[in-house]
Design a protein around this nucleic acid. Structure first.
Lengths: 193, 193
DNA sequence: CACATCCGTTGATATTTATCAACGGATTTT
DNA sequence: AAAATCCGTTGATAAATATCAACGGATGTG
C-alpha cells in the first residue's frame, strides 16, 4: 500500500531508502480512501495533513461571495495536496479540497513530516526538490496569468498537463485557468481553424 | 555594510549568529551598487546570483512579442531577488531584473549559499522561512489573479503592500497587477466615490 | 534656462471575456 | 426504464478591460 510512495521517494532523491527507513515511512503515513465528492479539506477548517495521492483525482478550490467555485489546484496520482498557508499558520483555510474520482491518499501531519525529514535524509531531499519545482511552476503560472491571453494560457496548459485534460471535465480546466466554461469552449473551437 | 543582512538573519531565525558566523556570512556575500536602470539580470542570461537588497528598488519583468513589459516582481529593502528557475535549471532567463532607483545589493551564488546553509544553521532556517512565506504569498497572488476583478486585486495589493505604492510609479503597479495603466487610473478614480 | 522625457489622466473606440438562457446528448441515480 | 443531473455548446447581450491618441504637469537633463 505504501509501495508507491516508497518508489516515489526513491525516484526523487539520490540515496536509496534502507528497509528500516521504509518501515519508518510506512508508519508515518496513514491510508485513507475518499469516495467521489468527499472532502479532504473543508473551508473554515485548519489543514492538518498533507496528502500524497496514490490513486484518483482531487481538486482544490475557493468559493466566492456569489457562490462561484474557483479551482486553484488539480491533483492526480503522485501529487501532494494541502493548504500550506493554513497548515503553517494554523489559520482556517479558505479552500476546499475534495475527491473528483474515488481516491486513495496517504496522510501525514506537519509535525510527523518534520520528524521524518530529520530521520530520513532522502525524504528531506525529496521535499526540498518538490518545493523547488513547486515554486518554479507557480512562478510560471503566475507569469502567464498576468501576461497571457486566455487562449495562450490554455495552449500552454494543454502542452504541460495533457493528463489533466484527460481526467478532468472542461469546466474545471476553465476554472483552473481563470476563465468561464463558455469562453474555453469558444477558444477551443476557434483554435481549430 | 553587511550589518543589515546580519540583522535580517537574526530577525528571521531563532538562534543568534556568533561572530564567527557573521564573518563567514560577510565573506560569502559580495557588495554591488547599481545605478538607476542598470541590469542585475538580463533576459537570455543564466541567473547566477541571488541578491539581497540593502537599499533601493528593483523590478523583475518579461517583455512580450509586442515589446510590452510585464512586471512579475517588485523589490525594496530586505527583499531577495533572483530567477529561481534559471538559477536552478541553469537555463537562460526570460526575465530582466533592473534597478528602478539607485540600488545597493549583496550577491551570493547558489553554490555559496548551499555551503553557507550547511555551515550556519540560522541561515538555513531563515531561507526555509523565506521559502515558506514566498510560497504562501505566491499562492495568494495566483488565487487572486484567477478569481478576482482588477479592482479587488488593486485593493488587496494596496492593503498588503503600501510601501510599493509609495516607491513605484503607478504604471509599474498596474503591470504587476496584470492590467494597463489606463485601467488602473480609472479604477482608482471610481473607487473614490 | 530650455528641452526632452516621464507620468497620470481622459476620451473614444475596439476587443476580450462574462453573463444569462437554452439545448441535446451522455451519464448517473432512482 | 424513467428521471435527474452533468457536460459541452451556442446565441444574444452586457460588462470589463485594452488600445490608441492626446494633453498638461512634473521631473530630469544638457
Amino acid at each position: 500500500m505504501h509501495q508507491q510512495l516508497i518508489n516515489y521517494i526513491n525516484n526523487h532523491s539520490t540515496v536509496p531508502l534502507t528497509s528500516e527507513e521504509e518501515t519508518l515511512i510506512a508508519a508515518s503515513f496513514h491510508f485513507r480512501k475518499l469516495r467521489k465528492k468527499q472532502y479532504f479539506l473543508l473551508e473554515g477548517d485548519v489543514c492538518r495533513h498533507t496528502a500524497f495521492v496514490i490513486k484518483g483525482a482531487m481538486r482544490q478550490y475557493s468559493v466566492d461571495e456569489k457562490g462561484v467555485e474557483h479551482v486553484v489546484h488539480l491533483f492526480l496520482e503522485d501529487y501532494w495536496a494541502s493548504d500550506r498557508e493554513s497548515m503553517i499558520m494554523l489559520t482556517p483555510s479558505v479552500y476546499n479540497i475534495d475527491a473528483w474520482e474515488e481516491t486513495e491518499i496517504l496522510l501525514i501531519t506537519r509535525a510527523e513530516m518534520l520528524v521524518l525529514m530529520t530521520k530520513v535524509p532522502a525524504v528531506a531531499e525529496m521535499i526540498r526538490l518538490m518545493d523547488e519545482r513547486n515554486a518554479i511552476a507557480n512562478q510560471r503560472r503566475l507569469s502567464s496569468a498576468i501576461s497571457s491571453t486566455a487562449e495562450k494560457r490554455y495552449e500552454e496548459f494543454a502542452n504541460h498537463h495533457p493528463r489533466f485534460i484527460e481526467r478532468f471535465p472542461q469546466h474545471l480546466i476553465a476554472s483552473f485557468l481563470g476563465i468561464t466554461k463558455e469562453t474555453l469552449s469558444r477558444i477551443k473551437k476557434q483554435s481549430l481553424r
